[in-house]
Write a protein that binds this DNA or RNA. Structure first.
Length: 294
DNA sequence: ACTATTTGACCACC
DNA sequence: GGTGGTCAAATAGT
């Protein structure tokens, strides 16, 4: 990797870590107020944010530390080709991977911005929660070998233990993906005092794809745009939101306005993951994670 | 019709 | 032989 790029990535990681730590402190403060008036759990929202930070940091860390520039190149053991058995009788005849690039994180959400397809679920000995197995949606299209395993923690924290195996090699995923996701997140973020319920929303994949293709990057500390409604607070800076406690902010909302295309959308990103205790047993794959286009 | 998920079976590894 | 990772037929969803 180019030293300057690596330096920027390290700075970004530090920024993400700082944001995560600030959110943790905010979580500690807000949790004492015990959900005074909300049907929406502030704790859940904060846990979601923390999960996003953790995932991003983890992915960036693995990317920075890789000699192969992140997701682009990966060495896989010869024994695991990923090819289907030639004949039906050979079903299940494969070699286990033993030396593979893995990273492990604990996150409040299974969402990480990549497109996954669930291919298996297994009850694990001495574990109440099953382990779910995911592969990259683009496995057969682009030969992407990325996989992940997800298992819910048993400590009642609604956290997930996520193991990533291999790296994304599919063309739609680039090293900058995480940064751009983060930027998209940042550019469309504002805080409102209005009461509301959490619903689910997804950014239009085509819009996202277009943003990705621009490959542009801006300073994380840029002023956050504000697509206001009548109850919206004054525009806040990203570092103001996550670097300090914003008193009175009762929920967080995303508005998506695409400056490149003539489309816009708004809503609450990924917010309905956390309140669903049955995600794992019912199939995490039910979630719409197909963010990228083939 | 096509794609994604579920789930029982198969098989490598310990 | 037990456990965990993967396959693939059946099923569900769009």
């Amino acid at each position: 990797m180019i030293p300057e790029m690596e330096q920027n990535n390290k700075r970004l990681i530090e920024t993400l870590i700082r944001g995560r730590d600030s959110t943790t402190r905010l979580q500690d403060l807000l949790c004492r107020k015990e959900n005074l008036n909300g049907s929406v759990s502030v704790e859940d929202l904060l846990a979601e944010i923390l999960g996003s930070f953790s995932s991003g940091i983890s992915m960036l860390n693995s990317s920075v530390s890789s000699e192969n520039h992140g997701f682009l190149v990966e060495k896989m053991p010869e024994v695991y080709s990923g090819k289907k058995p030639a004949v039906k009788e050979r079903r299940g005849c494969y070699k286990r991977r033993r030396t593979i690039d893995t990273s492990v994180i604990t996150s409040a959400t299974i969402e990480d911005g990549f497109a996954w397809r669930k291919y298996g679920q297994k009850e694990i000995l001495n574990s109440k929660s099953p382990r779910c197995y995911f592969r990259c949606t683009h496995k057969y299209v682009h030969g992407c070998k990325a996989q992940k395993q997800v298992q819910k923690l048993e400590d009642g924290s609604n956290m997930y233990h996520i193991t990533y195996l291999g790296k994304h090699t599919c063309p739609s995923i680039t090293h900058h993906e995480v940064v751009l996701n983060f930027q998209d997140f940042k550019n469309t973020y504002h805080v409102s005092n209005s009461p509301s319920t959490i619903t689910n929303a997804h950014i239009d994949p085509s819009v996202k794809q277009e943003v990705d293709s621009k490959g542009q990057s801006t300073d994380v500390s840029d002023i956050i745009s504000s697509a206001n409604d009548e109850n919206t607070s004054p525009p806040l800076r990203w570092d103001e939101i996550l670097g300090s406690c914003h008193e009175g902010a009762s929920y967080m909302r995303f508005d998506h306005e695409d400056s490149c295309a003539s489309t816009s959308s708004h809503g609450y990103m990924y917010m309905d993951y956390l309140n669903n205790d049955d995600l794992l047993s019912d199939g995490i794959g039910l979630l719409d994670q197909n963010v990228f286009l083939d």
